[in-house]
Design a binder for these strands. Structure first.
Lengths: 258, 258
DNA sequence: CGTTGAATTGATACTGGTCAATTCTAGTGG
DNA sequence: CCACTAGAATTGACCAGTATCAATTCAACG
């Protein structure tokens, strides 16, 4: 079966309103479920759970960034996603986790027993559509990632990543200052490249004036439109204007000359 | 949020029992929802819907195979999945489909109005977990595909594809005879390769006696264990035995030397 | 200020892509 | 029933984009 996102380009449906805001208003939301759980802290690099562990809990990211990855038996690593505040980890029907979750930055999480989570979801007509929406968003993101991995060049991949990172920010007027908390190795394993290729590509983007690194984990995006064009999936008209962030709900064409 | 499959290796949770069997028994199942809808036929190559179309319906595949794909604006195509009898297409919260669905073979479908589908799901405590299970399966399959696209070699990709195709069959005793209904171009666009590379890789597998083509769309798998090893994600012990199909629920390790 | 892992940069290798030429095969029509 | 045809698949020669290997350089932290 195939599902789609409630919002194009994977702005997560529920991420806009912070967990706190909803919980405070008493509106039933997925994160309000977790609100009473104690906050647990993980230092950067620490694993929340491992691929193969018994999947006993569902987690909500409260603060920080997680990486979620799978390893091939010879050590090749694939990061299937990064998780941000408001995201859930470990929702599943499987007895064991199918991936490892690690803290990229220091992370705060809330934990919920799996079976309790399931029964809460099952019995709440408010929560169910929200969970469903998150699944749809995640599926859409996975499909974008498949497009990236299957057909995009190194430059398109890096540009796509930076673009999505830029969109995650509350777009500061003009050029957004993007935080890249993860290492180049994380980026490489997420984009299906090597560190060297990621590094070279970013150097080239810098030389062309598209981005302007500010330390290793902060990047000023100087030409957002250019970045969007380089990323692939958008119509490549003017890259001169260099105005604000291209809106998320962009039009999609339905033409395919067979 | 991240979810996992109810069954490893993406044997779909609900696919085993045919739609008919369940519907006949009156057991509430996703496909029983569709059972009263008229069957629609699509000839090979016909589109069921296009990326960008208003997403007004959900479809159940009754017979045949669909390909689901997205196009980049310059024509690069990525097939994100193939759909088989029992699968649903078009489940979404989005107003428009995010991908095109086309018939690979002559296909029979049943159609269900989107809002009716949603309310049925919403009001049925039996159906909901089944839909959830399908979402989980699909998410797990998407993650496998990301691993394939991000890190596997051409040979590993082709081997993985043939292996999954072989597993879909009711494993005939000994060497399974695998049907590959799609063209090489479909395979290439699914595996992130070119037709030429797919072709060369299959030729090499044939020369090594791993597979034995029987026409262009049928393949006798002579060395299933070898194929499994070549596919990557399985421990590569003996490839001599060449006995039955490796079971789906294989063990996963949880080691990661950081 | 020194140390160490991360990142960058360079030289070279190799997998898979591109372009082009056959060869196959499933239809089609005589 | 069989030759013809057009698209699909295979094969080959060559090329390009990334990976690999190796050497610096950078920057965060003690």
């Amino acid at each position: 079966m195939y599902i789609e996102s409630a919002l194009s380009n994977h702005e997560p449906a529920l991420r806009r309103e912070t967990p706190e805001s909803l919980a405070a208003e008493g509106a039933p939301s997925l994160s309000s479920l977790f609100a009473r759980q104690p906050v647990e802290r993980f230092e950067a690099g620490a694993a929340v759970f491992w691929e193969g562990d018994t999947a006993a809990h569902v987690f909500e990211v409260v603060d920080g960034v997680l990486r979620v990855f799978r390893m091939m038996n010879d050590g090749r690593r694939v990061i299937t996603g990064f998780l941000y505040p408001g995201d859930l980890v470990g929702v599943s029907l499987e007895r064991h986790y199918l991936y490892t979750a690690e803290a990229v930055t220091p992370v705060k999480l809330r934990r919920f027993a799996r079976n309790r989570f399931q029964s809460e979801i099952h019995s709440s007509p408010e929560l169910r559509p929200q969970l469903f929406a998150q699944l749809c968003d995640e599926m859409a993101a996975a499909q974008d990632q498949m497009v990236l991995l299957a057909r995009k060049t190194a430059e398109e991949r890096v540009a796509s990543f930076l673009l999505v990172s830029a969109r995650r920010l509350k777009s500061v007027a003009g050029a957004p200052l993007v935080e890249i908390p993860m290492t180049r190795l994380d980026m490489a394993d997420y984009l299906g490249l090597t560190i060297e290729t990621v590094s070279r590509t970013m150097t080239r983007l810098t030389q062309r004036g598209v981005i302007e690194p500010n330390g290793r984990h902060t990047i000023l995006v100087r030409k957002l439109r250019t970045l969007a064009v380089l990323a692939g999936e958008c119509d490549e008209d003017d890259s001169s204007g260099e105005t604000g962030v291209p809106e998320a709900g962009a039009v999609r064409r339905a033409v395919w000359p067979h």
